[in-house]
Design a protein around this nucleic acid. Structure first.
Length: 682
DNA sequence: GCCCCTTCGGAACCCAATGT
DNA sequence: ACATTGGGTTCCGAAGGGGC
């Protein structure tokens, strides 16, 4: 395999040549990703067809093959032909947003006002400005509402049955809803209500979480016991060997990530000899509809100060219970609802499975057992028509099970060509996931070294709080080619939450904005706090990792050496006085730069003239005032003055303008090492 | 359904410190 | 002597929110 330099990716009848460097897809991959509009959370299946040619299937958040989804949008109604292409996957993913999507948190006035206001960018992107037209909103249950879209006052609003829509869909303050524009005739456009769910404080709208890792983290599998339904304050016990082996006894807080990738903050604590979740469990249990007897996997994915655990239930139910065909896929099976059975095919064998209300029932367990399904396995169902599905099974090695078994038998295989014929592997479309510590291919994970990646460290400045952006260091911007680049950036924080922010260059500086405030608040960043951003992937949508704790020695920015109260290096308390601090450059160079305000007030802008400075002991020095570019300086004679007054870095001094003629005369009030001294003089 | 005031986000500008 | 960089301020349009 090492000699292979290129791979050919095939999708939708087209081919892309991609450079292979070791085991990494490099040159050409970005083009492939761009042309397929890949998003974070999309899921790819690579089927090797020999000679490094891969047929790539792309799955998006609807659980359905992208190609088929696009086909549907075109309004084609040839069901049988279409079903030949249909696939769905049974795995948690996240949502991706495009211009035709609009996501918002429901505000109280959305309901009380009786209208919904659409953001301008969304309205423009979809040609809804300057338009008055009828509108149909269809919800997840295919119910329709007739609404009226009205644009005026630079706003686009939706009236009509909006109130009814809110009531029937039980929309409340804090819920978030997603709309997708679906073309439907000339004058009527359909905004399709995709979904709504309660947002919680730990899950801001902008966040989209990374998927869980491969099956390599400490975990245990258990069932929900009756005590999980007792009083909220009682401990929801964790197995003690798990607790001890992972050092959880010393922790008081934990983040649980559920299958919808929502994060939940819970308190840990001890009761007698038991240890477990004290607070927060009830909310987690209720929100996830956890029932007595449910089997679940508790996987510790990060064991930092605040450990992070992924709790999954439906993976297990795939094996022990009866799986349900995803809602998103049901619409593609229209016309097949009279079928009582489905045929599943895998590895050349077939299983007859009873279908009840789109749930796979009788026969499923046999299929699961005979295919030895395990927690974390992923299945891809390809509908071949007439409710016959070809099922591909992927295990935690990311390889098709059939192939993995072959590998085991043929350990140390040499017949690459023969093997590759059967080979399929899957990978997250986004390099972020591929390169994250947990999800790296194993060989790569072992050599993962964050220090080798491009990163920058900085301190939170006051402007970061008062303004909604962070300026990025120039060297970092150049190094990562983000100068003059306008794009989204995904930042994954220490709690494994992902944030979508934006990069933009203004005034020759690259800014991190569009969600900066939200990110800062959620990560409790305040003036003086340390921050480190590390580049994980640097494509069209860069992905960075954020760290808020300093890994080692103090990091002091050059400007940090002068705390906030000293930042106003010179502040003239009247036009004729100036207080100054001796900066390092004043010692290295033969000049001192005057504050522009003071220079302006005393007519010194663009001036070159002599200057006399007298001290309190009536000693005097002849100096010169000079103008270089934008600055006004005390130039010639400065060094002598500095030495004779024994000025050192950090010393404060004050000058008073005595006369302002052709050769100004200033009075020097000596140096003050401390602010208090300065005040006593004033 | 319309209007108007407030708040927010972000682009542009100003200025000081320091690098070359 | 000029260039570069970083921190801070100002201004203005867009969005939020509430009254009628």
């Amino acid at each position: 395999m090492n000699h292979i330099k290129h791979a050919i990716l095939k999708s939708m009848g087209k081919k892309w040549l991609v450079k292979v460097n070791g085991w990494r897809l490099e040159e050409g991959w970005e083009k492939f990703a761009e042309e397929h509009d890949l998003h974070l959370g999309d899921f790819l299946v690579f089927k090797h067809e020999g000679d490094m040619e891969f047929e790539v299937s792309i799955f998006d958040s609807s659980h359905c093959d992208r190609e088929y989804t696009e086909y549907l949008l075109e309004g084609v109604d040839n069901a049988e032909e279409t079903f030949k292409k249909v696939k769905f996957k049974e795995a948690a993913t996240h949502n991706c947003r495009g211009q035709s999507h609009y996501q918002c948190i429901v505000r109280p006035n959305y309901i009380s006002n009786g209208y919904l206001r659409l953001p301008k960018h969304f309205a423009i992107a979809n040609g809804l400005t300057n338009k008055k037209c009828d509108l149909i909103v269809r919800d997840e249950r295919q119910r329709s509402w007739n609404l009226r879209l009205v644009a005026y006052d630079s706003c686009v609003r939706v009236y009509g049955e909006w109130s009814n829509f809110c009531i029937v869909n039980n929309l409340k303050k804090g819920d978030y809803v997603t709309f997708e524009i679906v073309p439907y005739g000339e004058k009527i456009c359909t905004i399709k209500h995709l979904r709504h769910k309660k947002s919680d404080v730990t899950t801001p709208m902008s966040q989209t979480l990374a998927s869980t890792s491969a099956d390599t983290n400490p975990h245990f599998i258990s069932t929900i016991k009756p005590y999980a339904f007792t009083k909220a304050l009682l401990v929801r016990y964790l197995p003690m060997d798990f607790v001890k082996s992972n050092g959880l006894m010393s922790r008081s807080e934990m983040i649980l990530i559920d299958e919808k990738q929502r994060s939940w903050s819970v308190w840990l604590g001890q009761t007698g000899h038991q240890f477990g979740i004290k607070r927060g469990w009830t909310q987690f249990r209720n929100a996830n509809g956890i029932q007595l007897g449910d089997t679940y996997k508790f996987e510790l994915t990060n064991n930092g100060t605040i450990p992070i655990a992924h709790v999954s239930i439906s993976f297990i139910s795939l094996v022990h219970d009866y799986p349900k065909i995803p809602i998103g896929f049901l619409k593609y099976l229209k016309g097949h609802d009279q079928h009582e059975h489905a045929i599943l095919r895998s590895a050349g064998k077939t299983w007859l499975v009873k279908v009840n209300g789109w749930r796979l029932e009788e026969g499923w367990k046999k299929f699961a057992n005979e295919n030895d399904l395990h927690l974390g396995d992923m299945l891809v169902f390809r509908h071949e028509g007439d409710m016959e599905f070809e099922v591909s099974i992927f295990d935690s090695s990311h390889c098709d099970r059939e192939y993995a078994e072959y590998l085991q038998q043929e350990a140390g295989f040499n017949n690459v060509e023969e093997t590759c014929k059967k080979f399929e592997f899957k990978g997250k479309s986004n390099l972020c996931i591929m390169s994250s510590g947990e999800a790296l291919p194993y060989a790569e994970a072992a050599t993962y070294n964050p220090c080798s990646r491009s990163h920058f460290e900085c301190i939170v400045k006051p402007y970061c709080i008062t303004h909604s952006y962070l300026r990025l260091p120039k060297h970092f911007a150049m190094e990562n080619d983000i100068f003059n680049k306008k794009c989204d950036v995904i930042i994954r924080d220490e709690r494994q939450r992902s944030w979508k922010l934006r990069l933009a260059t203004h005034d020759c500086r690259v800014h991190l904005l569009g969600g900066w405030r939200e990110f800062r608040v959620a990560n409790d960043l305040n003036v003086g706090d340390y921050m480190m951003f590390e580049v994980i992937a640097n494509g069209e949508k860069p992905i960075w990792k954020f760290r808020g704790d300093k890994p080692n020695a103090n990091i002091v920015s050059t400007r940090k050496a002068f705390p906030k109260e000293e930042f106003a290096t010179c502040s003239s308390f009247t036009q004729s006085h100036v207080e100054c601090i001796v900066r390092p450059y004043c010692l290295k160079r033969n000049y001192y730069r005057l504050p522009r305000g003071f220079a302006r007030a005393n007519g010194l802008i663009n001036t070159k003239c002599g200057l006399v400075i007298r001290d309190e002991r009536q000693r005097s020095w002849n100096l010169r005032i000079d103008t270089y570019g934008y600055g006004v300086y005390i130039a010639k004679g400065w060094s002598k003055f500095r030495v004779e007054n024994d000025l050192k870095e950090g010393d404060r001094m004050m000058f008073e303008v005595v006369s302002n003629g052709e050769k100004p005369i200033w009075k020097f009030y000596g140096k003050f090492s401390h602010l208090s001294n300065l005040f006593s003089v004033i």
